[in-house]
């Protein structure tokens, strides 16, 4: 069934959009990532104009994250206090990121820098996660050889403004989560994604939060950052396509529910290694596109009417 999208001004298959939404929703619920880093390139691929894809995707992430976070609230796997600290940083970062994005756009190199950001961050994050989870799986297979590592104190524990995060069983300074939230906010605005794929590993490896709490807390923060981004795009660029958003989120919210349940069944190490492989695959594809000779050297952009 073909459907005409009023803002994107293209006609696409409605079932294709529902399917894409569902697939990305499953990932969202499983890993606590918004899924934007997959969905945005997929939307480009099916012919949605990039500006509309980025803006509409932000709106869709609000829905799938909200659906996902409700499931986590019921299981009490959301650290609201931590989420609020991350969010405070996230909103500051997002505001900075939007300005950076504007400057890059004026320089005419925004696409390249967005792609480079994707390649670098997905590569580093995916690689680190992959190695870490492999080690974790190896340790769990022969527990005799590896003593359970004691919670070590790193530089994070030496900073002021200490707060108690009961849900995460942490007593650490508020500065690292605020900075992580801010960094993710900047990247989210530049790359047009929720930023979960960076925040989740940062919460695990820098803050030392338990994996189960990480997913819910990340979703909690993503809702607000993407809602902010949606409003910015709607007001400034009028590029949020309501019909596209509804189709994507119908599939997305259902997928997120399925994903959240699948996530409970899988072991933390398996979950991490799956996410790592996915992140590396997207990174590889984007890197290939940068290096391989494109079939069309020219590209069109409507330079204002």
């Amino acid at each position: 069934m073909q459907i005409y999208l009023p803002i994107a001004e293209v006609s696409v298959n409605a079932f294709l959009l529902l399917g894409l939404g569902g697939l990305v929703g499953i990932l969202s619920g499983m890993f606590g990532v918004g899924g934007g880093f997959l969905m945005t390139p997929l939307l480009f691929f099916i012919g949605i104009p990039p500006a509309v894809a980025v803006a509409t995707e932000a709106n869709q992430i609000v829905a799938s994250s909200f659906s996902g976070v409700l499931a986590h609230f019921r299981r009490k796997t959301v650290d609201i206090k931590m989420g609020l600290v991350l969010l405070a940083g996230g909103l500051v970062g997002s505001a900075i990121g939007v300005q950076v994005f504007k400057i890059l756009r004026e320089m005419g190199q925004v696409e390249l820098l967005v792609t480079l950001c994707y390649v670098i961050f997905l590569g580093v994050v995916g690689g680190l996660m992959f190695i870490e989870s492999l080690n974790a799986i190896r340790r769990s297979k022969n527990p005799a050889t590896a003593p359970k590592p004691r919670k070590h104190h790193n530089w994070v524990h030496g900073l002021p403004f200490k707060m108690r995060f009961r849900q995460s069983q942490l007593y650490i300074s508020a500065i690292p989560p605020f900075i992580i939230g801010m960094a993710v906010g900047v990247l989210a605005a530049i790359m047009g994604v929720g930023g979960g794929f960076i925040m989740v590993p940062a919460m695990i490896y820098i803050l030392g939060m338990p994996t189960k709490v990480v997913v819910g807390t990340s979703l909690f923060q993503i809702i607000f950052v993407t809602a902010f981004t949606t409003m910015m795009h709607a007001v400034q660029n009028q590029t949020v396509d309501a019909v596209l958003a509804v189709l994507l989120l119908l599939g997305g919210v259902v997928g997120a529910q399925i994903g959240a349940r699948l996530g409970v069944r899988l072991k933390a190490e398996q979950l991490r290694i799956l996410l790592a492989i996915l992140v590396l695959a997207v990174c590889g594809k984007l890197a290939f596109d940068l290096i391989a000779t494109p079939s069309e050297l020219y590209s069109l952009g409507t330079g204002g009417h």
């Binding site: 009023p6 803002i7 799938s64 659906s67 409003m231 509804v246 989120l249």
Partner: peptide, 29 residues
């Protein structure tokens, strides 16, 4: 309707888009 709302009342349009997203998320949950 969608096109004119998006261009003439962008703030309202953004709020509605968010409301629809939150409702859909809640309903699915």
């Amino acid at each position: 309707l969608i096109y004119t709302t998006a261009h003439e009342r962008p703030f309202l349009y953004g709020i509605i888009s968010l409301a629809v997203a939150l409702f859909a998320g809640w309903a699915a949950s």
